[in-house]
Structures are given as C-alpha cells and as structure tokens.
Design a protein around this nucleic acid. Structure first.
Lengths: 224, 224
DNA sequence: TCAAAAGTGTTAGATTTACACCCATGA
DNA sequence: TCATGGGTGTAAATCTAACACTTTTGA
C-alpha cells in the first residue's frame, strides 16, 4: 500500500456544466460558491472525488445530488490542472457537461442549492477557470450534436419542429434555414410526428414530434 | 491552507501516447513497466504530477524526458479515474497524445528507456486501462487531423505526396484515391513543392514538399 | 379581417467520387 | 526493355444552399 508514496497527492474534484434550453436560449446552471476560498463568487457546481469513487461516478453523483434526476446525458470535457487554478489549494478538476430538460428540474431543488439559469452569452465572471470549462463544454456539445441526436435531452419529450430548430440555432450559434432544416428532420425516421397539436405558441398550432430511441438504435446514424 | 482537508487526496499521473509513422504504419511507443505494481507489463510511459506542477506542464516534461524533444504537438485526451484502474493505489490519470517524427527520435534514448515502436494494430495488452487510452487518443487524433494540418508532425520536414497520403490512410484507416488526394493538397498553398527530388522510393523520383507554417497562419483553414 | 406562426418544393451551384493511362528511370 | 512508383483530368452523382408563398386560427 505504499507503492507511490514518494509522490505528492492532490485533491481531485469534478465540476459540472449543466446546459438547459429555455425561451429560445441556451442556459447554464450556476450558483454562488458556498465555501472558502471564493465564497460568494459565481461558480459551477462541483464536488470532490471520494477515495473509492470513480470520476464518472462522482460526476453522476454530483449531478443527481443537484437535480434529483438520474440517467442524464453526461460527458467528460477534460481535466483542468494549472498549478494555481484554485486559489486555496492544489486541486485538479475534471469538467463534465450534462443536458437537462429545464421542465424536469424541480424548482425547489434549484432554489435550495441557490442556483440560477443564466444565458450562455451573458455569463458573469466565474470562479477560477470555470469560464474556460464552460467554453470547452459548449464546443464539445456542438461537436457531439452534429453526430448524435442528443439535442432532445434539452427538450420536453414532445416538441415542435420550430422548438427543435431554435435549439439547434442556439447551440450552434447560427441561423438555420427553416425548409432545409425540416427536410433533414423528415429524413430521420426516429423523429416521429404524433397526432397532437401544440397550440401554445401559435393560433394555428404546431404538430408535436417525439424522439423514438429504439428506432434510432436500429440504424444509429445521424447527421445534421 | 486547510480548506479542503476533510476530503481525500489521490495521486494524479499523466500517461502519454506517442504516435509515430514508419514504413507506412502508425506506431505507438510503449515499454515494459519499470515499477510495481505491474512491473514488466507492456505500458505507456507516464509520470506523477508534482505538487506545484500543472498537468500540461507535467505532460510536456514527461515527453521531453522521454524524447529529448521540445515543442512537440501534444493534446489532452481526457482523465481516466475508475476507482480500481490501478491495481496498487488510487490514481487518477490524465492521458495525452503527442506526435513525433520517428527520425528525430534519438535511438539511444529510446533504448535507454526500453521503449519500442509498435504498430497500432498489433498492440499487445497494456497495463491497466492503457489500451483504452490509446484507442481514445487515436480517435482524437483522427478528428484533429481533419481540421488541422498536424499530420506533418509525423513526417520529416520534407516529404513526398505518396508518403503524406500513406500517412493519412494509416491514421484514418481507409484508402484514399490518389488523384483526389493530390487535387486537395494542391489547393493548399501552405504545402509547398520544393525543387528537390526523393529518389529513395522510386527510380523516377518523387517531388519533395514542405509544410510552410507562416503561409498556413495567414489563412488557417484546412479540410481534408 | 388581419397578425402571427406553421408548413411546404424547386433549382443552381458546389462538392465529392469514381475512374485509367502516360512518364521517367534504374536495373 | 520492362517493372516500378510518380504524376495527371474529366464527368456523373450527390449534397448543399438559397429562396417565397399559402394555410390556419384566435383575437
């Protein structure tokens, strides 16, 4: 049990970038840091990796603690380990991003943790290197979204094509042609039209669609 | 100095996946592990992150220690932190990949470290989760190679178009049409034809090309 | 009746892919 | 002289991008 004892040990933590989509905007969940150093600064939510806990496990636990939700889409962004990144101690932190449907998120839990949804493009300065983590997380998500149908994770289980388009526009940061977008979506068998109509956003009403994961798994190709 | 003292500390190490290109094949530099646990197993080269050392710094140092070379192309792959990934202790490891030109690598240093170039497709079982690290590193490199001209880092400063094509084929794992490939290369102003001829691989001789980084920087777009 | 969002096809241009022969040279 | 790797262009097919009007309905 003393194989590596001549080497230094450090703290390892996990920080999660939680993306949401609301009012046509891409949002990030941030809060005021509750511990020293940096108490009171805007910050991502995070936690320390326990002695016998895997880092993915730790990220999943942190995420669950925060949202009460399980099986969220989550991916590692990378490790951040500049020697002075944390003003208090030497901490190497591993960033993860996760996608949640804002409506699934219990408002009470959000308030209990003192968290807020902030527009990606209006983020304040965050603790330590958290702004950089968020930037890199978005880049990862953008890449992933081109090749895997993960956008649905940010939407209710039923959604309109306009909502979906706004989502892709918000994430990619560029406008998409409506007709071209709908053409591409209609080629994807795993996006199914339901016979329900959403009347909330227009008088005419828009058809509601649903992502069918088992159809996707039969032919898991995706290209937007 | 005791902000996080209730949390566990762990060892953090860095493992480097060093890619090379030789005889038309993509190679990885591996060696026999020199310490317990796992002494004698095939392994990536790595090292522990020191108390006041950034992780990128640590990777660069490890790489320099190993090759004697500086300013190599190097990128992080990600953090690996399953609780039992190291059979001896709890170690979170951060994988990096680097590209080197095999000819720049001092043969003596290689032997001193007991390292060998092994074809990517013939890798033996490696220590711990190192095989997975290598797989992920290759995927990263493949992605990167589509959008940035980093392949040159694996070649001598002058190379023939056939060599370059073989390189891209080896990395991507698929054949490329010769004429289409050369067409695309000739659209890139930063790949310059020299007036030298390489006669080593054919009687006729092949024109030698060179990557011109300052031309690239003027218009840094790349798409293979 | 009109404002507001939903819904729908076509065409030109750009990009990608497939494909086969001549060239130069040393052995 | 011939075997070997170097070098070159065109045409079909596919993909991408641009673009404007009609429909429905609640207020």
């Amino acid at each position: 049990m003393t194989y590596y004892s001549e080497h230094a040990k450090v703290w390892v933590s996990v920080d999660v970038i939680i993306f949401g989509f609301e009012e046509g905007k891409l949002k990030v969940l941030i809060g005021r840091r509750q511990m020293d150093p940096g108490r009171g600064e805007w910050s991502l939510y995070g936690g320390f990796v326990a002695a016998n806990e895997g880092i993915d496990e730790c990220a999943a636990r942190t995420l669950h603690e925060l949202t009460g939700l399980q099986n969220l889409f989550m991916r590692q962004v990378g490790a951040f380990g500049a020697p002075d990144r944390d003003p208090g101690e030497r901490v190497v932190s591993i960033a993860y991003y996760a996608l949640i449907n804002v409506n699934d998120y219990d408002e009470r839990l959000r308030q209990e943790h003192g968290l807020q949804w902030v527009d990606y493009y209006s983020l304040p300065q965050l603790y330590s290197d958290h702004n950089e983590m968020v930037r890199q997380a978005l880049r990862r998500m953008q890449m992933k979204m081109r090749v895997e149908p993960i956008g649905f994770r940010l939407l209710p289980s039923m959604f309109t094509l306009t909502q979906l388009q706004r989502l892709y526009e918000a994430v990619s940061g560029q406008e998409i042609d409506k007709r071209n977008f709908r053409k591409r979506i209609k080629d994807m068998d795993f996006i199914e039209k339901t016979d329900l109509i959403d009347k909330r956003t227009s008088k005419r009403g828009a058809a509601l669609y649903r992502f069918n994961d088992s159809v996707y798994k039969e032919d898991p190709t995706f290209k937007l």
